[in-house]
Design a protein around this nucleic acid. Structure first.
Length: 694
RNA sequence: GCCACCGUAGCUCAGUGGUAGAGCACACCCUUGGUAAGGGUGAGGUCACGGGUUCAAGUCCCGUCGGUGGCUCCA
């Protein structure tokens, strides 16, 4: 006699066990028709799920009207679509084995093991016919039917079928405590296609609505690169074609906002085959943005008591043997630069001998630095340090080089040479908390000034595998507490992730999403007990005895490349005036206003404004359009009327009209205030009381 | 690094084995124009690179380089 309580607070009682669908019918036929599944006490279930005890139930329905479908509805639709796709692929590619097919953010995928007999692999050319087969299956409107076998019987079936992947899935389910194994047939069990699956699914195949295969990629079994190579086919599904089309349009829009597209159009940066992959060429306009950000943070660093240092781009291998970067991380470094006189010896070595000799130190050379810390540590070690000197804060925009895997490179977001806004703080145990807080203030200053409010804070802590971590447990406890505590004072939600610490200490990372939804770490603060130990760093305490300092690595931007890449997308290339490569463009209406236009231009230039004049380019509307395409914050149209009044007619990017004329001096002073205030207050708001912008 | 796809003018892209194309941008000329595309003319190509098949290759095959997406990695 289950009593079911519903989201509106009402309850319904039944004499016998009922299906979720029956409860929906009991509420109303419309709801029953729309039901895709249910949520019973927080667990998502099929419409056919039987309720035999009191519970809280929410019916999952497809979207109504213009509302977005619920996450649960999309989960069911996409999980079901993954099955239909798997069936279609098995139909079209005999010999494949299914591995694992979950719904994911934005869609679903299915991992598939393709036969290694040289038969054609699934390629994007096959998407149309896979989709066509899926639509046939959907049109047949076959019910998703769950059938359950006891573990032994189920295992026996899987053994017979001979799929090691499904067998593995089943074993995992059993290990996780399952007492049965379930299959879902698209239709009648025994007659139609089925798949080992925990469920749940939509009631029948037609309820999936609209599907699209998106891409195919390689993946690895259990995510392990040494394990079987699998083919992962990604797709997405929506309740209807209209929503699918809207989703695809959104992806297109995101692509237009991609920093690689915008960066080329606005001439911010370039990559060049001849220079090398992942090596950024900062063009003049991009360099302005980077330089301006560096100046901005440098001011803050001075206030916080940092000292600027400079160090070279290379260091001897011994430096990195001591730090532990070489050869442990050799795979992710550019190959060493070997001493000239040793080149000959190398020429006769086999690869194995060579790497041994490099490791042992028989062959010496230099490394393009993968990190700045070893150099900064040697600066710390270059003089006797007293506790009175601490904290020592050494800052450098240090360029580092890492041999990122070729498949990982992507625009400015993942490169092989990048400049960190790096600093290393050497402090006492007691100072860690305060220093971490200071680092977070810098991140807050940056994010706050630039209006970055959509980010995640991740605190990386030790995992259960204690052997992985260096340093005293008590120090770790304090450092972890310092990181958590500091994250809390930020006043934003953060996630504490066990096992995500670096091996040398806990860290706080700031993570943002790019325009196509990928996550990237920007700023980071890391506490380090390892390197001071490895380098034997000491300072003299008040007790006149040597003590080991604690190091903090921090980079509030992360790297200038990644940060600017992200920022291009954040602003869609329309940078606030203080960052914009070209802040003002002067457009004389005609040659008759040339003199006044020149004078406007030089006045602005004298005020330290990055200004240009466009006296060519044809008619005025054409030149306005051109300036808009370059996303220039302020466009000043000057004609005879303006010259007469010593004024400029102002347009601001993103507002498609003339805001009106103001005196040149008035404009310059308002703009100067905006630039000096890093965007606050905006000149156009002050002058025209408008808050419209792009 | 792995799998798939892509590489044609500065940019965006057409071109399914038979004489390399368009729009934008660029140069020059006309237009002196008051708020998002005025008109004309012209220049611009080793079709990424190397090999192969073919009477004939931008097009088909192989390799290399580069890019994109995902996987793995990320001190």
């Amino acid at each position: 006699m289950p009593t079911v309580s519903l989201p509106d607070g009402s309850t319904r009682s039944f004499d016998t066990p009922v299906r979720v669908l029956d409860v929906a019918s009991d509420i109303g036929p419309g709801l029953a028709k729309a039901a895709l599944g249910g949520v019973v006490d927080g667990t998502i279930v099929d419409c056919a799920h039987i309720i035999d005890a009191d519970c809280a139930l929410q019916i999952i329905t497809g979207p109504r009207g213009k509302a977005d479908p619920s996450d649960e509805a999309l989960f069911l639709i996409r999980h079901s679509a993954a099955h239909v796709m798997a069936e279609a692929i098995e139909d079209l590619f005999p010999g494949v084995q299914l591995v694992y097919g979950p719904p994911v953010e934005g869609g679903f995928y299915y991992d598939i093991a393709e036969p290694e007999d040289g038969s054609p692999r699934i390629s994007s050319d096959d998407f149309d016919r896979i989709e066509a087969r899926m639509r046939e299956i959907m049109a047949e409107d076959r019910p998703f039917t769950r059938h359950v076998l006891p573990v032994e019987e189920g295992m026996a079936r899987l053994e017979t079928e001979g799929s090691k992947y499904k067998l593995d899935n089943a074993q995992r389910a059993v290990e996780a405590g399952s007492s049965t194994l379930s299959w879902y047939a698209t239709g009648t069990p025994g007659t139609h296609w089925d798949d080992l699956c925990r469920g749940p699914h939509v009631p029948s195949t037609s309820r999936i609505g609209a599907v699209k295969i998106m891409r195919v990629a390689a993946s690895y079994w259990h995510g392990d690169a040494d394990s079987d190579a699998l083919t992962r086919v990604y797709g997405t599904a929506f309740p209807d074609e209209k929503r699918l089309a809207a989703h695809l349009e959104q992806l297109e829009e995101a692509r237009r906002r991609d920093h690689r597209v915008v960066g080329r159009k606005l001439e911010l940066f370039a990559f060049d085959e001849m220079v090398g992959p992942g090596l950024t060429l900062w063009k003049p306009r991009g360099a302005v943005i980077r330089e301006t950000l560096q100046q901005f943070i440098s001011e803050a660093l001075r206030r916080q008591g940092y000292d600027q240092v400079f160090t070279p781009h290379v260091g001897k291998l011994d430096l990195y043997r001591t730090s532990g970067h070489f050869p442990y991380y050799a795979d992710s470094q550019f190959p060493p630069l070997v001493d000239r006189e040793q080149m000959k010896a190398m020429a006769t070595c086999s690869c194995g001998e060579l790497s041994n000799k490099l490791e042992d130190g028989d062959i010496d050379g230099y490394l393009l630095k993968p990190m700045n810390c070893p150099h900064h540590i040697r600066i710390f070690a270059s003089e006797a340090r007293s506790y009175r000197d601490l904290p020592v804060r050494l800052a450098e925009f240090g360029t580092v080089y890492r041999w990122e895997q070729s498949g990982e490179l992507g625009g400015l977001l993942r490169v092989r040479g990048f400049t960190q806004d790096d600093a290393h703080l050497f402090c006492t145990e007691d100072q860690v908390h305060g220093e971490v807080l200071g680092c977070l203030e810098l991140v807050q200053l940056i994010f706050g000034t630039l209006g970055i409010d959509d980010f995640e804070v991740r605190v990386g802590l030790r995992g259960p595998d204690a052997g992985k971590y260096v340093g005293e447990a008590s120090n770790w406890d304090r450092a972890e507490a310092a990181c958590r505590n500091a994250a809390e004072t930020l006043g934003v939600p953060y996630t504490a992730e066990a096992g995500e610490a670096a091996f040398y200490g806990p860290k706080i990372d700031f993570v943002v999403k790019d325009t196509i939804g990928r996550r990237w770490q920007l700023g980071t603060v890391q506490v380090d007990y390892n390197l001071p130990e490895r380098f034997g760093l000491t300072y003299t305490g008040a007790d006149n005895a040597p003590h080991r300092p604690v190091m903090i690595h921090r980079a509030p931007f992360g790297s200038m490349e990644r940060f600017v890449g992200f920022l291009i997308e954040h602003f869609d290339g329309a940078f606030p005036a203080w960052l914009a490569p070209e802040q003002v463009r002067v457009l004389p209406v005609s040659d008759k206003s040339a003199q006044w236009a020149d004078s406007v231009e030089s006045t602005l230039r004298d005020a330290g404004v990055r200004v240009t004049q466009d006296a060519h380019g044809g008619r005025l509307p054409n030149r306005i359009r051109e300036a808009a395409n370059w996303k220039i914050p302020y466009v000043l149209v000057v004609g005879p009327r303006d010259a007469e009044a010593a004024a400029v007619s102002v347009r601001v990017h993103g507002v498609e009209r003339d805001l009106g004329a103001v005196g040149l001096d008035e404009f310059v002073s308002a703009l100067r205030t905006e630039l000096d205030g890093h965007g606050t207050p905006c000149a156009h708001e002050v002058l025209f009381q408008t808050t419209e912008t792009a």
